[in-house]
Amino acid sequence: MDLSSINPVLLLASLMVAATPILLAAIGELVVERAGVLNLGVEGMMITGAVCGFVVAVATTSPWLGFLGAAIGGALLSLIFGFLTQFLLSNQVATGLALTLFGLGLSALMGQGYIGIKAPEFPDWYIPLLGDIPVIGPVIFQHDPMVYVGLAIVGGVWAFLKYSRAGLILRAVGENHEAAHALGYHVVRVRMLAIMFGGACAGLGGAYLSLVRVPQWTEGMTAGAGWIALAIVVFASWRPGRLLLGAYLFGGVTVLQLNLQAAGAAIGVEYLSMAPYLATIAVLVIMRAGRAPGSLGQSFHASR
């Protein structure tokens, strides 16, 4: 094995790119769970976003419109989950699983004519001055715009939850929906909006895979990224700051594993590919999760 072939600067630079899809999906799910809803359909919304984004981007040759299409696609799919769990009071775990199974089928059907096509180019941003700093420049300031969009969303969610009145209402709904209802807040409305935001973010994360990271459409290309995003929300104890840490930790493991594969490590490729999943399990075991939102996963039915 030739470890010297691994360039630490490039490794750190690709870490941010590898973490972005998970980060996007996880920040959406964080908002959903803070509103007291457990949507296990992240994987299904991600893959649907991946295919919607790819189809739109190829049709319009604009990656930006692709990302928009992915967000809309993810949000539309999440509406099914929202309708079933919020209005028909179905079990959230089962409905989330159904959403994933449905999304995998839907994406495979939608993406049929798009296998083997290349996505339109999505160039990196060149940030003058900052991008020229040695080491830090290439690591942090020479990425495609979506990396920064992802970071901006995380920052926005943090500020929203911490400082805004609407964020306070959302947290109240998630902590105790009976009390929030008694105070006159529309529990179901808040939750539907949160679910749609989660769907849109998952869609963006999926599209980042199909438009930037790979950049192609293949069936089942998310390969568990949505589930890892769910795990990272637990790891983050439902706090945006730690979410960032978790996503970058995960990105680091993925990138290191890929680099070791390329460097010809003595371990088999299959065993290296297990690393991100095993790392996720290890993180779930080691980190004591903080307190989950009080009403997480419970159906809300306003009795008269």
């Binding site: 079933l84 179905s90 449905f102 999304g103 839907l106 495979a108 059907l109």
Partner: peptide, 25 residues
């Protein structure tokens, strides 16, 4: 396309969960 069958199976679970509301409500 075989994916259509996968969608059909997913749909089945959706409808089941949706109609289930009548069991409890």
């Amino acid at each position: 396309p075989i994916a259509a069958i996968q969608i059909l199976q997913g749909m089945l679970l959706f409808f089941l969960l949706a109609v289930d509301v009548l069991t409890n409500y």
